[in-house]
Amino acid sequence: MDKRIRTSFIFSVIFIMLSLSVLGGCGKKEADSTTVPKEIKIGTIRVPNDQQLAKVEGYFDDAYKKQGIKVKFVFFDSGVAANQAFASGSIDFAEMGYTNGVVALNRQIPVKLIWIHDVLGENEALVARKESGVKTISDLKGKKIATPFSSTSHFSLLKALEAAGIEKDVTILDMQTADIVAAWQRGDIDAAYTWEPTLTELKKTGTVITDSKQLAQQGYMTTNIELVRTAFAEKYPQLVVDYLGALAKANNAYQKDPTAAAAKIAGSLNLTAEETLQQMKGSTWLTPQEQLSPDYFGTSKETGQFQKIFLDTAKFLKEQKSIDQVPSEKEVQSFVDPSYIEQLVKGEK
């Protein structure tokens, strides 16, 4: 073979090999961008709402297993623990009271608020021991009251005490729900503001003084919300929409047959079907369309009332020294993200 021809041949071979290598690299990059995680970790609390129903009905499995994704549920007794898990990057989704969402934003935990599970009502309440003699909020003066700090119950308790003008005349103790029951049984506390299913246990020997439904009527609405880890949402936006789809499916099932939904949840909460149904009726479940209304999220183009409530709550928590800085309106609007609900609704049409 002529030397010039041989040299040209060698360069041609090298060029082809390099081209294949580049193309192979591009193909690999494209494949990486379309892969899904092997497992999704979901933080949950034992509350009879759409997340719990979606869990027991297998709606999350329906959404993810066909994509080869395992679903793991991690129980948290409060949003404080869930926020710690988010900060360490060990969970992808979690439910909590929205006041802990305020804390998450304040601490710059990389998460977004993407769903309102329920608007709280009679399922969160202030209960006093019958033997304490407490019948009104004013009667709590000088008493010991327990609640999980930075929770919706904590916020509601402080607002109730503030309205009665006795916020400085009581002792408030920070306790998780299991500790509240134990302290109640020992007689260490006079009252507690807490949620279900702990609330049902306290009501057996206690008297309801006020609840979150009454406080909402006074302008202090509280909700349970869903947060998603920002890095997860940015990498797998469709998986976030799929998650909300499972919640919407659970909402539909509840609206069609509340009694059947309660019966399916009851066992996971160690409650009777009747107790579960009563608790579920104590809050308001929102459809995706309702969440996008001006009363709640609003839309990506026009924010709703919820962002204002969120900001007002942040100001209150700053006054209580639960957070060290009030976020700006822009920060709240970036944190409260209705875009995934919008995609869900658009896909349903």
Rank of each mutant, 00 (worst) to 15 (best):
G97A: 13
H117A: 03
V103M: 09
K112R: 14
Q108K: 13
F76W: 00
P110M: 11
I91R: 03
F73T: 10
F76Q: 01
L113R: 03
M96P: 03
Q108F: 05
A81W: 00
G97N: 07
F73I: 06
G79K: 02
V71T: 13
S88I: 03
M96V: 00
N83E: 08
K112E: 13
N83A: 01
M96H: 02
L113Q: 13
F76G: 00
L113P: 06
I114H: 07
A104Y: 08
R107E: 15
A81P: 00
W115G: 10
Q108R: 10
A104T: 12
S78D: 14
A82V: 00
K112N: 12
V80S: 08
G101K: 06
A82K: 01
S90K: 14
F73V: 08
N83I: 03
P110R: 05
Q108N: 14
R107V: 10
Y98Q: 12
V111G: 02
V103D: 06
F93I: 08
G89L: 10
K70Q: 14
A94Y: 08
S90L: 11
A81I: 02
L113T: 05
P110Y: 12
N83Q: 07
N106G: 08
F75D: 15
A87R: 13
F75C: 10
V111Y: 10
W115H: 14
V80W: 07
N100I: 01
L105Q: 05
N83D: 09
Y98T: 14
F93T: 04
D92P: 06
A82L: 06
W115N: 13
D92N: 04
N106W: 06
I114K: 04
S90T: 14
V103I: 15
V74Q: 13
I116V: 11
T99G: 00
V71P: 08
V111S: 07
F86K: 09
V80D: 09
A87G: 11
I109P: 13
R107Q: 15
A87W: 10
K112L: 08
A104H: 10
